[in-house]
Design a protein around this nucleic acid. Sequence first.
DNA 1: TAAATTCTTTACAAAATCTTTATGACAAAG
DNA 2: CTTTGTCATAAAGATTTTGTAAAGAATTTA
Lengths: 230, 230
Amino acid sequence: MASQNTIVVIDDESQIRKILSITLGAEGFKVIEASKGKEGIVAVANNHPQLVILDLGLPDEDGFTVLKEIRTWSNIPIIILSVRNSEDDIVKALDLGADDYVTKPFNTAELIARIRANIRRTQLPDSQSVVVNGDLKIDFSKRLIYKNDEELKVTNTEYMLLFLLFRNLDKVLTHNYLLKEIWGPVHSEDSQYLRVFIGQIRKKIEDDPAHPKYITTDSGVGYRMRLINN
Amino acid sequence: MASQNTIVVIDDESQIRKILSITLGAEGFKVIEASKGKEGIVAVANNHPQLVILDLGLPDEDGFTVLKEIRTWSNIPIIILSVRNSEDDIVKALDLGADDYVTKPFNTAELIARIRANIRRTQLPDSQSVVVNGDLKIDFSKRLIYKNDEELKVTNTEYMLLFLLFRNLDKVLTHNYLLKEIWGPVHSEDSQYLRVFIGQIRKKIEDDPAHPKYITTDSGVGYRMRLINN
DNA sequence: TAAATTCTTTACAAAATCTTTATGACAAAG
DNA sequence: CTTTGTCATAAAGATTTTGTAAAGAATTTA
């Protein structure tokens, strides 16, 4: 189980670590500092923190590498810290499984808000195991999907897709992200899988599969589950 | 920490320095004057001003060199002063990291407005996931654009352009910069792409696309998203 | 083992998007 | 006043991306 209120900060700048230690400490978090990528990975593995703050500009290895490494064995929320602000990096980090992105110099109050939001989100499925959207419903604990309170028969892969989409209502999930999450990094280019499965799901959940209102397409980017006003 | 309300003016013409000293002094700024490039660099390093005004036509060393030098260790906003008819220089300076430009002879009121805009921009938290401007709104995490709280349908390329413009409110982004960021270095000369896409975006976001208030044109230089008072 | 289910792969039409071209307006320069 | 260069805009054409069906392979179930 994750250690309550523990955060691992991976950043080579001691000043940043200090600021975060003090600020987050005052907010009731226990902060574990790491100045190097490998050190950080070990710290995450040993301490099972609730969240990780990771700087992209590490000296020994690229922040992306650390991110990838952690994501091979953990779904812990990771907030990226970086001076870079090009969209490519943001998309790349998000594709690799980062949960959020904050650029330096950052506003402390906002970073704390982001931390809380990310912790809250990952705890959602436990405390609130049912999410309702329009006439659809997903029960995470039972692993079931309903439409108009009737159980839908979905395959394992279809469920995984729906799971990810329901967990990120209104947010676009990139092809890359979905493919990596479900089929693994090897198939991160095989977007035809997605087309086929999204098509299958639409047949089951949409009233008019040719004009979907739940799962919409962002051409060239990905898919998103629309939040429908209930 | 940056000294509140301090501006360093680097210009070899004593008359210009005098005018700026008086005008900006009356606006509540403390002005530090430098007549030569090196002197200016030292002044910036020692005084940590809030903003720098730099003349491109310096005698001892080229204004570009000063700009490059300062940019190696500081992100302080730098406004370029330049004689008219030297658009090439302006573009070059902006691509080297200058924040804005004003052509001589300049309108004092406009210069002051530019100074305030640039100071304000650097104080905006750049890690917000939602930015509001007039009746427009962008949600970076969801990757959505709204006008009057209604979602706008934008293509991937249109979104990338809006992303960059929203991240740099009130700052002119050069053709070159935008083309490189979105189409890659190969197309850095194809400014007709920009014209077409800016036109498309204006149709969607402007009340009167022929007289845009959001995305304005800096002829020969680039485009900028104006900050609208909310 | 046979049947049923699910997944993978392919192919092609449809839709969406991007690129290219052409034209005219406008402002600045000569 | 003419020339030149930049910009706005529409629209045609090219390209890319997506939706969909369907066949074969693999896996699961009975």
